[in-house]
Design a protein around this nucleic acid. Sequence first.
DNA 1: TTGTAGGCGTTATCAC
DNA 2: GTGATAACGCCTACAA
Lengths: 329, 329
Amino acid sequence: MTIYDIAKKAGVSASTVSRVVNNKPGIKPETRQKIEELLKEYGYTPNETARGLVNRSSKMIGILITDIRYAHYMDIAFFVEQELSRAGYTCLIVNTGTTDESKVDAIHRLAQRQIDGLLTVGSTFQCDAVKEALAKSFPDIPIAMANGYLPLPNVKGVLVDEYNGVMECVKLMQENNHHKIAFIRPNSTPANLNKQKGFLQATREGKAPECADWIYQAATSLEEGYRVTQQILREHPDVEGLMFCEDEAAVSGVRALTDAGVKVPQQVNVIGVDNTRYCEICNPKLTALDNMMLEMSMESSRILLESLNGNNPPARIMLFSRIIQRETT
Amino acid sequence: MTIYDIAKKAGVSASTVSRVVNNKPGIKPETRQKIEELLKEYGYTPNETARGLVNRSSKMIGILITDIRYAHYMDIAFFVEQELSRAGYTCLIVNTGTTDESKVDAIHRLAQRQIDGLLTVGSTFQCDAVKEALAKSFPDIPIAMANGYLPLPNVKGVLVDEYNGVMECVKLMQENNHHKIAFIRPNSTPANLNKQKGFLQATREGKAPECADWIYQAATSLEEGYRVTQQILREHPDVEGLMFCEDEAAVSGVRALTDAGVKVPQQVNVIGVDNTRYCEICNPKLTALDNMMLEMSMESSRILLESLNGNNPPARIMLFSRIIQRETT
DNA sequence: TTGTAGGCGTTATCAC
DNA sequence: GTGATAACGCCTACAA
């Protein structure tokens, strides 16, 4: 069912039907009504592909996420999708993987799709490979980055102050008289390195500055969180606190501790980051740094939408994280 | 950069360029090579929108999910997206919400997009409202339903034997000498009603047939799982087992029990369904019915891909669930 | 082996 | 108020 079909049935031309479909003025009321009835009767829906071709706008937004399965990203994806679809956009969600090539590859795949805007989720996209690919493939559509920023003219970024956030977390443990604290991160994304800096700062100012070396690596998974905690327990039986970069490994760390007969939080404090649902499921419930995922999603989509509407929102925005105290501190 | 631009630079016509881009035969090797070089040099990528218009194929697949945030759905979405994008398709993931109108609305929104295929996730789409909307909006594109089926000529369904699965779960508790078992479900999706039937069957055959009335309702959330468990404890202090329809409420139920001083699994057994990550985070770890989400995603995308390729896979496939025993039974 | 012409469904720009 | 007509970028008969 095309506008031509409708036009024929209404005894008018296709342009008239088009005008009605798009609510353009300058149509005789009777004509409009008659056409609207036919539109409804035949269940006409405009072909967005054809529209996209002539309007050079697809009403589609690309969303880049390394792995949608991680709870934190998923929440962002959900809210952003809600928000954008309310504004009439359809979301192309692409799981990019974590390597440079796979991220660049995802960008190339999206490039064929004439998307109107792009949103990246996670600081991992704040890297040179992505910057270059974006500059080449999307030089002039609005790009918003949730938890990231790249110095390109069409990129807007929303960041969270995780440096101070993690610093406060460590200080919280120190105030609980837990000074020997290990830091565990999955990989070297800008966000995680930032957290590490916060950890180092607080550690150096604290009573156990030797812990500045207690930096461990563990992927975002239950298995790895368990493994690394056992390792830390072995290498530093006197450990008093674990500062994880994300919740998934952290909850597993809590389990590793209790399995080893270590009392949480009496002997060891544990803090995660992201404040996902996992925190509440964990027993004892996990204290976590809330990096304002909800606000970040809302700000990112708002900024993207504003750019899409031709406004020019600030290039960078910073949100402040906060600690949600539960049972592991 | 269009094929016309390339054609001009190569001194040939646009159709020749088109043929090269699409690897069509009948091009002089030198011409082909020259064009290919230009293609690379200028970083040409075909405009999928224009292609879609003429080919009547967008290489896009719509994915309908009520709420991507629920771990179980999310995993499916992830695997399906991986699988389909490997086959050259881009996924439009739409969170539909749970009401009939919002689901139908999502279908209408997708209808404008000329998608090549559709995949629904969750038995909630197995309802009359959706059936009608699909019949009207997508009468002739392949549709695959993960955990669902609708009797339409273009619909293929992958189902799980949750009836027997839940029955076996209840029997497992009965074998542990736990007979007074309550059943908790979030809403009346076909899948959940099926589980309920399994529960009833096992209960009637067991030593405490009066429990056939112990059917409770609790939404898929930590809060509700906690609330309903307290309620059950109040109304039936002698309860010996909890059979939840999904993990999220179940893990919270476990916490409600331990908070109330009830020993799990000694006094009360708990079993969830879906076998999500939550099971491992829960302490004690949650026994759950694995409804083969991974296999389901793979089967669904495989079936969809086959239909897309013009084959005609079986209309319905049934997978068998299995119990993953952990620490709550 | 290559080019020309027509069309996919829609919108925008002119005419009338 | 309404109707031709020409794009948008690509593909595919058919012709050369």
